[in-house]
Amino acid sequence: MYTEKVMDHFSNPRNVGEIENADGAGQVGNPSCGDIMKITLKVEDNIIKDIKFKTFGCGAAVATSSMVTEMAMGKTIEEALQITNKSVAEALEGLPPAKMHCSNLAADALKAAIEDYLKKQNA
């Protein structure tokens, strides 16, 4: 069902948690649909210095959250915004068709966190 890469990120999720006084925070999903993702960021000189996630969801949801944090870590804001649902799924060597929507959440949560950061910057 799941690739080895998915199972690796599921069993050893990277960057679990919540950054206090985050520079940006984003939450997407809805608990009644079975999935929520929350991403918090620390940004320095336009570079994502730290990123953490919290997820309520299936194996794919946990793995995509973990993967998206790994992909975004150390990237510039512009580079991080290039991360798509598709690239997350590909980095995990694929997801079962029924689970593709979980990868949407991960990229969406990252985007939401970055937008929150940019909004705060402009405020």
């Binding site: 079975g34 999935d35 079962p96």
Partner: peptide, 30 residues
């Protein structure tokens, strides 16, 4: 409360335990 069944099921599976869940995610339905 606060957790999702498929993840629990997979973690228990990694410990060698087979259980099931009525979570939507286990069936791929919403």
């Amino acid at each position: 409360r606060f957790i999702e069944g498929e993840s629990m099921l997979l973690m228990l599976d990694m410990k060698g335990i087979a259980i099931s869940s009525g979570s939507a995610c286990t069936s791929g339905s919403l």
